[in-house]
């Protein structure tokens, strides 16, 4: 047991850095799903897209601080593509996201030219902060933490503006929002696009963190992000917009520590999927089993057609 604990503790910094980076993917799931009632799977493709764009830009000599915005822009376009498919062709949001993700796999391979590209020589974002030897993880935690704070604070401010409140109305009651003079399509483009941008941001940070990009890096990420979101929402609640915005970050931090604990406890990496599935089920199912009627809303969200 002591060995498990000490392994777990040794893993905390690296897990923390990872979970901070991946919290942007959780945010990318939350915004369309919770704010716009637009359940969306584009993140699974936008995440490696962000990684690919960032990596290729950096290999071509673009500095990291410019490569990241490029990646975010690419992710935004991917999100808009999903929104366009749904709005123009009336295809269900989930299917639209799957279509875009599938197509992005080929796009990502085209961008990279080969399945994986190393980033050893290039100056990564994390190299701009030098705290000395052995402080790699701390550098990452500080930089990504700062970024997370800026994005989180920015979103909090946005959702207090007239436009932000109008955007929430689009997710809550699109017909009413439209009747009150809001352009529903534009809000969806903006929201789903921003989510794609968040996922791409996460991807671009991850390739710099691990110093290589792999075209398969997004596979299975979605269910992890969803599990993290559920954990965050169960802990914080989601009645208020501030709780809803904080949930992805808190959920991500806790979820990846749980996964890390499972690994420390000797669970094979191949068994992590079932562990994740069980997390999600417990988070969704526990309130229902306990008979709390209000919280059952979590499980049966209305899905936008």
């Amino acid at each position: 047991m002591n060995e498990v604990i000490s392994t777990f503790i040794a893993l905390i910094p690296v897990t923390l850095a990872q979970s901070l980076i991946l919290s942007f993917v959780v945010l990318a799931i939350m915004i369309p799903f919770r704010i716009l009632s637009f359940p969306d799977l584009t993140s699974e493709g936008a995440y490696p897209l962000g990684g690919a764009v960032c990596a290729i830009a950096m290999v071509s000599g673009v500095p990291a601080y410019l490569a990241i915005p490029l990646a975010v822009a690419a992710g935004f376009v991917a999100g808009c593509a999903t929104a366009l498919i749904h709005l123009r062709f009336k295809i269900h949001t989930l299917l639209a996201g799957i279509l875009v993700t599938t197509m992005l796999y080929s796009v990502n391979l085209r961008i990279l030219g080969k399945p994986n590209v190393p980033l050893f020589k290039e100056t990564k974002l994390f190299d701009y902060l030098d705290l000395g030897k052995g402080m790699n993880n701390l550098e990452k935690i500080l930089i990504v933490g700062l970024l997370m704070g800026v994005v989180g604070f920015g979103l909090r401010l946005w959702f207090m503006t007239e436009r932000g409140i109008a955007m929430r109305a689009v997710g809550d009651n699109p017909d009413m929002a439209e009747a009150q003079g809001n352009n529903v399509d534009r809000a969806i483009f903006l929201g789903v696009g921003a989510a794609g941008g968040c996922a791409a941001l996460s991807g671009s940070l991850m390739v710099q963190s691990q110093a290589f990009v792999d075209v398969n890096m997004g596979i299975g990420l979605l269910i992890n992000a969803l599990a993290a979101l559920m954990i965050g929402e169960t802990i914080l609640g989601r009645r208020k917009i501030s709780q809803q915005l904080l949930a992805p970050f808190v959920g991500s931090l806790i979820y990846y520590q749980l996964i890390s604990f499972c690994l420390a406890a000797g669970l094979a990496p191949s068994d992590l999927k079932i562990a994740t599935g069980i997390f999600v089920l417990v988070m969704l199912g526990a309130p229902i089993l306990k008979g709390k009627r209000n919280t059952t809303r979590l499980a049966k969200e209305s899905i936008r057609e």
């Binding site: 007239e162 929430r168 009413m176």
Partner: peptide, 28 residues
């Protein structure tokens, strides 16, 4: 149909007030 049920009374009133104008990037 006429209200956004997941939002507060105050937020709904704001939405109604914005019916005749464009939502701006200003505090709601």
């Amino acid at each position: 149909k006429g209200t956004a049920s997941g939002m507060t009374i105050a937020e709904n009133m704001l939405l109604a007030e914005l019916r005749t104008s464009k939502a701006r990037l200003k505090p709601g």
